[in-house]
């Protein structure tokens, strides 16, 4: 197996006396789609927040491209090539769709031509965003905001995209659309690390994954292992 692009080794995150992540070790290779399954509060978001620098691990290391990024500030990590579409989206709700996308490319501000090109790519991926380019982000529907959140992350032209529960609160048809786009993003060469409760949808696109429970990795394996695991079936697929 080649050297993983993202590698967490024994990462713990502590909030006061509460241990949100305990010695978690996971990895994502170049060009992969990896899913992180888990219930609400299991630690999926905390893990992503640790990777993108919004939380500091109390122990362990996070390597991206062989460099330890666990002590880097969040705004530096984006520059390294990790973009995060977070839980709650955190869009700039009063700014237009176009401005949100432009801000997504903040780290590439010295390359306006490349930014325009990326904006076209995002519009091709989500044509709805082009139609709504002038509208304030806050006026979009839940599904549209999710697409904008993914689009904004893509504007940084990341090599690794962290997607935190993109299906949350969306109608089944929209979920399908979002997952289609995840496959397309991956085809264009971006690795995707996907946190989901919707294992059914997630395991259709991911080849490999982890199940996280109470802050620890409980199960890991390829798609078939996870689909066949009775616990995964009971807890996350609902069979």
């Amino acid at each position: 197996m080649p050297e993983p692009m993202l590698e967490l080794k024994g990462v713990s995150v502590q909030f006061g006396t509460f241990l949100a992540l305990r010695q978690v070790s996971v990895s994502v290779a170049e060009g992969e789609i990896v899913v992180l399954l888990g219930a609400n509060g299991a630690g999926k978001s905390t893990l992503f927040r640790a990777v993108s620098g919004l939380e500091r691990p109390s122990e362990g290391t996070i390597h991206f491209d062989g460099q330890d990024i666990s002590r880097l500030a969040a705004h530096r990590i984006v520059r390294e090539g990790v973009a995060h579409a977070p839980e709650g989206k955190h869009l700039f709700t009063e700014a237009s769709v176009r401005k949100n996308l432009l801000l997504g490319a903040y780290v590439r501000r010295k390359d306006p031509a490349g930014v325009q090109e990326s904006m076209e790519e995002v519009f091709d991926l989500f044509p709805m965003l082009r139609a709504k380019a002038g509208d304030a982000a806050g006026t979009l529907s839940g599904g549209q905001q999710q697409m904008l959140s993914i689009g904004r992350a893509l504007m940084a032209r990341p090599r690794l995209l962290l997607l935190d529960e993109p299906s949350l609160g969306l109608a089944p048809l929209v979920v399908e659309e979002v997952f289609e786009s995840i496959l397309e993003i991956n085809r264009r060469g971006t690795a995707v690390f996907l946190a989901e409760q919707n294992a059914h949808a997630a395991l259709k696109v991911a080849k490999r994954g982890y199940v996280i429970e109470s802050g620890s990795v409980a199960i890991e394996g390829d798609r078939d292992t996870l689909v066949d695991n009775p616990e995964v079936r009971r807890a996350y697929i609902g069979v």
């Binding site: 993108s52 620098g53 919004l54 500030a73 969040a74 705004h75 530096r76 984006v78 520059r79 973009a83 995060h84 977070p86 989206k89 955190h90 869009l91 700039f92 709700t93 009063e94 700014a95 401005k99 432009l102 801000l103 997504g104 490319a105 903040y106 780290v107 501000r109 904004r152 992350a153 504007m155 940084a156």
Partner: peptide
Amino acid sequence: TLVGMSIEAMAQDREGALLVGIDT
């Protein structure tokens, strides 16, 4: 200006600003 945009972005969502790479 981009500086102004980053000020506005931070006013609207500090975490969003960090995640797009703005040095808050």
